[in-house]
Amino acid sequence: MKGRLQAVAVAALGIGTLMFAWVGAAAAALVTLRKGLTEGAFVVMWALLPATAVLVYGQDVGPLCMLLVTALAAWVLRNTRSWANAMAAAVAGGMASAAVLNRFGQDYLSGILEGVQPMLDQLQAQSNGSLPQILTGDIAAVIGSSTVLWSVLALMLARWWQAMLYNPGGFRDEMWSLRLPAGITVLLVAGMLLVSQSGEVYRFWGVMCLLPFIACGLSLLHGVVGRYKLGRTWLVVFYIALLLIGPLWAVLILTAIVDSWIDIRRRLPTAG
């Protein structure tokens, strides 16, 4: 926030290192959130240079996709003041990234598939051949889903920075109240069903549409725990259960879908 040079330095250095690429994307998003499209686009333009270098020399398209989708989501959040719209934009960006790779980057996807094929063969042997064969379209789905996930996390980091600087406590309130409107829920569910029924190549692309529901489900959990001051133990227990009990993910997603229609928080009794 001190100036263009500092913002460009943090964004470019972060994007240029794979481990901290999401921090670089968050820096560009922070500028967009606070100062608007013009200043944000200036930082993104310079951050595109290391992102392109990573793509050309490191053969990794992740930082480039993450930077562009995070910038798009930040612009939407600034203009609409809606996390639901921002996450929907991130899903659209992830879908677009996967579609572009699936259409023009078959050699790139095939190279990744060849690199992980020994591990896949080992998993197939352990499962007695019960796992489906992995296709290049599945690799594109993984890249698209990763783009959506890390873009939303980078945007959350940027929003947290902004709140610390200009509105302490505001980020927590936003996260506790995060909820999808019914219209966006219908669009996401329809998109998930549409792509999953579009052929074997697109069988896993619907995962990108599920990520906003997971975020909203976790937001509902944190909001309820915070509202009733239940303590962090409840959160720790839930996250451990989430890792150990697979069907709990479906419950979390269904709860977020139901919440988009009936607003569970509003129906809960007042704390105390």
Rank of each mutant, 00 (worst) to 15 (best):
G272P: 01
V251E: 05
V224P: 04
V189D: 08
N85S: 13
P168H: 13
T80Q: 13
Q122N: 07
G170K: 11
G144R: 07
Y202E: 10
Q133D: 14
G115T: 12
Q59W: 11
Y239Q: 09
G191A: 02
M156C: 05
M119D: 07
A47I: 03
W160E: 04
T38S: 14
A140C: 05
W161C: 10
G217S: 05
G14F: 02
M164K: 14
E39Y: 01
L49K: 04
G62W: 08
A12P: 04
A53M: 14
V207N: 07
M208F: 12
L135Y: 03
V43E: 11
N167H: 10
G105Y: 06
A182G: 11
L178F: 07
M1E: 10
W176K: 14
T136L: 01
L113E: 01
S151D: 08
T52E: 05
Q122S: 15
W22P: 11
L235S: 09
P181Y: 09
L211A: 05
C209G: 05
A92N: 03
T136A: 07
G111L: 11
F238H: 04
V61Q: 06
A89K: 02
T270M: 00
A96E: 00
V142G: 12
V54K: 07
L180G: 11
Y108C: 11
I264P: 09
V152S: 00
L5M: 12
G223W: 05
L252Y: 03
G111W: 10
L123R: 12
N85C: 06
L149D: 00
S146K: 05
Q122D: 00
L157R: 03
A73N: 01
T136S: 08
V224W: 10
S219V: 03
T38Y: 09
L165M: 15
F42R: 15
G169M: 04
C216P: 03
L30N: 12
V225H: 10
G40W: 01
L221K: 15
V258A: 13
S82W: 10
D107A: 15
N128A: 12
N167Q: 08
A11H: 11
V61S: 09
P132S: 06
G40C: 06
M119R: 15
L109K: 02
M164Y: 04
G40N: 04
V69H: 02
P168R: 14
L55Q: 14
V148Q: 00
T147L: 11
P212H: 00
T17E: 13
I184H: 08
T255L: 09
R265N: 02
V189N: 05
A215I: 06
L220Y: 14
M192R: 02
L55I: 08
A74D: 07
T185R: 01
L55N: 14
A25I: 06
N102H: 15
G3E: 15
A163C: 07
A92Y: 01
L193P: 04
